[in-house]
Amino acid sequence: MEYLLIFLIGLLYSSGIYLMLRKSMVKLLLGLILLGNGANILIFLMGDIAKGQPPIIPRDASIFTQMYADPVPQSLILTAIVISFGLQSFAIILLKRVYQMTKSDNLDTLNTHEIDI
């Protein structure tokens, strides 16, 4: 399974970067989300998946007796997911506002280039 996940990480990263390199603002946002997903899986994979049980101590014990999944990457990812929700919602609204003002989805129209110095 690790192979598939590694491939998936690569795919999500390259898709994310590719979308971010487009001119469209919506695609930029989608790319950002894909990149975030890829990063989450990457962290998850680092915590040795497939060792089975969730990191929850059994009812009748006070310490782990069996193998358990690594809790640290999980709490990191949980934080990351929630934070990225905040980021995404802010970015979506920003996009909406920009669109309202410029009537364009094109990132390049935001550019004020050729400023003489």
């Binding site: 990480i9 690569g10 390259s14 970067i17």
Partner: peptide, 9 residues
């Protein structure tokens, strides 16, 4: 994008 993804993998 492809090279970046490959590198990460």
């Amino acid at each position: 994008a492809f090279s970046f993804g490959t590198l990460i993998s």
